[in-house]
Design a protein around this nucleic acid. Structure first.
Lengths: 325, 325
DNA sequence: ATGAAAGCGCTAACAT
DNA sequence: ATGTTAGCGCTTTCAT
């Protein structure tokens, strides 16, 4: 492969001049510029970016820590990130972590050694204190709520959205309410749980542990929840479901078993995925794609101006009333 | 940031020795190894991979050309790729191209300049002849059928699977059959179209252009198809649908408009996405995740042994009979 | 405007 | 077993 020296020799100029031409620097005579460009064309030359990375300390790549690419929640966020990255001409080093801490550490380390210019974290296992320590090496943006003066974040108010959903159900007279979440111990989940129990207690209703389901991710998981409910002596009359996909699984299985929705089982779901429309599910739009877009643009801003401040943006959620409440 | 020289100085050894320790090379005394490791720990040192990339000419990164991350078809393939990459500890440079040729060229170029070690192509706009020219720079694997002695591929037999679907429909007595595809001009689509018309002509039935729908990707697109059909004087009685998501949209809209499935409109769909189960859709499992996994492992093999031959693997598809035929 | 030369941080061939 | 040293391909002073 030809290198910059070859080009310089063939064009009859110095490597510095070639570099200037390559980087669109001023102070190069038209004649030499043309000569260089001709040789570049003729040899079909491309710069070795690894050398460029080494010397500039930048890579035009940002890392993305994402637990599961195929879960609708994360897929939507990723979609937003990818859209903006395409636009900004920045490359994405995507690491599907399955929540493995060592995978997260790996990307953090890449930031430290400048293999990536910045890092987007959709969700993580590592503690924020650990992650914060890496912010000295480059901007880090979180797609969840975090109080930090070193890591920017974009999030929606999961507490608020869960309270809204609860209010909807309580107003309809429901008191036997359960919920389905993914990870039970995440920050978001804890918030949701808190909203859930706050709403219940302000209505003077006790929390029923047996109606709280965790590790519910898929359509099949949703069906499973319905089967558990059917076996109960006392069943919940309403369910908050984190994820439309799961809600669809629940509704489908419920109907199959003679339960009417919403009469026997009301559902409020989250995310406003296309499938929610299909099943006419009342859902709260969490603006997931927008979260991804915003996260990326926050990152870009800090990349372009490292002095720009750490920001925390809360995106408004939005209730979509349909037929399951 | 500390570099290898600092470590060498502090540990009282040469940079070569440090490099040997870092790379687990033999011929280093335990004493020196320990000394180096101690300093590495103490300084929390990490190698600058950009320098390593420059000198080794490798990056432990592979590129992924993928048109849309959020389309179920591609998302499933991506899932397979990501699973294997996680396992193999290889990083993924993912480029969502939206089928923009210049984005594809960009990754091809990265291969040329060794910014990535290999390339996975899920689908593309560029001609294979163009892409083939880059195979000299590193292994390229395609997730679609291609006849090439330079690019390996994993694919399923779209012609065969479409023929099977047609056979199913013809056996049930359908002769007024239409289809819904995404891109109409892709290689896969052309194959499917061919299977479609071959099947029809072998049954002595003419092809009806007005029943062939293109650019159909989403649930909403599916609903739109139904609305077009309802307006027709003569309607198809069956539809081949590339994608369960779209099929779900079709069924939902059809039922809303009083059409019975399969009595008024039979559906055979493809991919066996979880949503197909929910809607009880007869579908042909295209083994998408498996395609992704296989593509990655083919790439890995060629990365580890560049002399290993170009391979073309066809994965068997599988009919899942449910209730829409 | 142009070029010479000094690195960027690392690996590996070579010498000892 | 260990160290010295020559690059990898590029950018960027610093001269001129």
């Amino acid at each position: 492969m030809a290198n910059i020296k070859d080009i310089a020799r063939l064009a009859g100029v110095s490597v510095a001049t070639v570099s200037r031409v390559l980087n669109d620097h001023p102070y190069v005579s038209e004649a030499k510029r043309a000569a260089v460009q001709e040789v570049v064309q003729r040899l079909n030359y491309s710069r070795n970016v690894n050398a460029v990375h080494l010397i500039t300390g930048k890579t035009n790549m940002v890392g993305v820590v994402i637990p599961y690419l195929n879960l609708p929640y994360f897929n939507s966020i990723m979609e937003g990130i990818a859209q903006e990255a395409l636009e900004a001409n920045v490359h994405l080093l995507v690491s599907q972590t399955n929540y493995a801490a060592d995978k997260e550490t790996e990307l953090l380390n890449m930031l430290k050694i400048k293999q990536i210019d910045g890092l987007l974290i959709c969700s993580r296992s590592l503690k924020w204190e650990v992650i914060e320590a890496y912010s000295q090496f480059g901007p880090i943006i979180a797609c969840e709520y975090i109080e930090s003066d070193r890591i920017s974040s974009v999030h929606i108010d999961h507490y608020g959205s869960f309270r809204l959903a609860m209010q909807l159900l309580l107003e309809k007279g429901h008191t036997r309410i359960g919920y389905c979440l993914g990870r039970g111990h995440s920050f978001n989940s804890r918030n949701r749980r808190r909203a859930f129990s706050d709403a219940l207690s302000s209505a003077g209703v006790p929390v029923r542990e047996e109606w709280m389901f965790y590790q519910i991710y898929s359509i099949e998981d949703g069906a499973e929840v319905v089967r558990s409910i059917l076996d109960m002596e006392e069943r919940p009359t309403a369910l908050l479901v984190a994820g439309d996909q799961v809600a669809a699984g629940i509704i489908s299985e419920a109907v199959k078993n003679g339960l009417r929705v919403p009469e026997d089982l009301a559902i409020v779901s989250f995310d406003n995925h296309p499938i929610a429309q299909l099943f006419d599910i009342t859902t709260i739009d969490n603006r997931l794609v927008e979260i991804g877009r915003t996260a990326f643009s926050l990152l870009l801003k800090r990349l372009q101006d490292p002095a720009s401040p750490v920001e925390h943006r809360e995106l408004p959620f939005r209730l979509i009333e349909r037929a399951t409440v």
